[in-house]
């Protein structure tokens, strides 16, 4: 059952991811953003299959919720008709496809031949309680957690400054 679900979610993730990058029917950034939401939702499904329930929830909340709303707001500020008028450059597309296919070939061959997962069983029960204990109680990740909160504050101040009309 889990294996079938893995194949379904993996296929959905790659299919939607493909539609984000090269949608044959529409070059509209809004369509790309919508398919990115679907990609992230199917990735959250894969996270659930890997027993990372908290991360799946955070993925949906932060990415599909907050980040994508931000993206859509910015898209609405811009002229999206402009994108549809432009054509791809044939040379650029050919070069990009070659480079990416080469990279994927190398990585896939390495994964297949290294035997990285040989003998490893899916053993880890990464439920929310374990993650919370590791983050807050053990003291191992407490300092990075606080630093990240300061980073968020800095990002917030920076964004407000950057989006002011008259930057003085």
């Amino acid at each position: 059952m889990q294996d079938i679900l893995f194949y379904i979610f993996a296929a959905l993730t790659l299919f939607f991811g493909f539609l984000v990058v090269v949608n044959p029917f529409s070059r509209n950034p809004v369509t790309s953003a919508m398919f990115l939401v679907l990609t992230i939702a199917s990735l959250a499904g894969l996270f659930v299959l890997l027993n990372a329930f908290f991360l799946a929830a955070v993925q949906i909340l932060v990415y599909a919720g907050a980040v994508m709303v931000l993206f859509l707001f910015v898209i609405m500020l811009m002229d999206i008709k402009e994108e549809e008028r432009r054509r791809f450059k044939k040379f650029g597309v050919a070069m990009g496809l070659t480079a990416v296919a080469g990279l994927f070939g190398i990585v896939a061959k390495t994964i297949a031949e290294s035997g990285v997962g040989a003998g490893l069983k899916p053993a880890f029960e990464g439920d929310t309680k374990t993650l919370g204990t590791a983050l807050f109680s053990s003291g191992q990740f407490l300092l990075p957690f606080e630093i990240v909160s300061i980073l968020l504050l800095v990002a917030m101040v920076g964004v407000i400054l950057l989006s002011k009309k008259d930057l003085k």
């Binding site: 790659l14 991811g17 493909f18 984000v20 990058v21 090269v22 791809f88 650029g92 597309v93 070069m95 990009g96 496809l97 480079a99 990416v100 296919a101 990279l103 994927f104 990585v107």
Partner: peptide, 10 residues
């Protein structure tokens, strides 16, 4: 990852 890279290039 390759799909994302393709998007960045193309």
């Amino acid at each position: 990852f390759s799909l994302g890279l393709l998007g960045v290039i193309m």
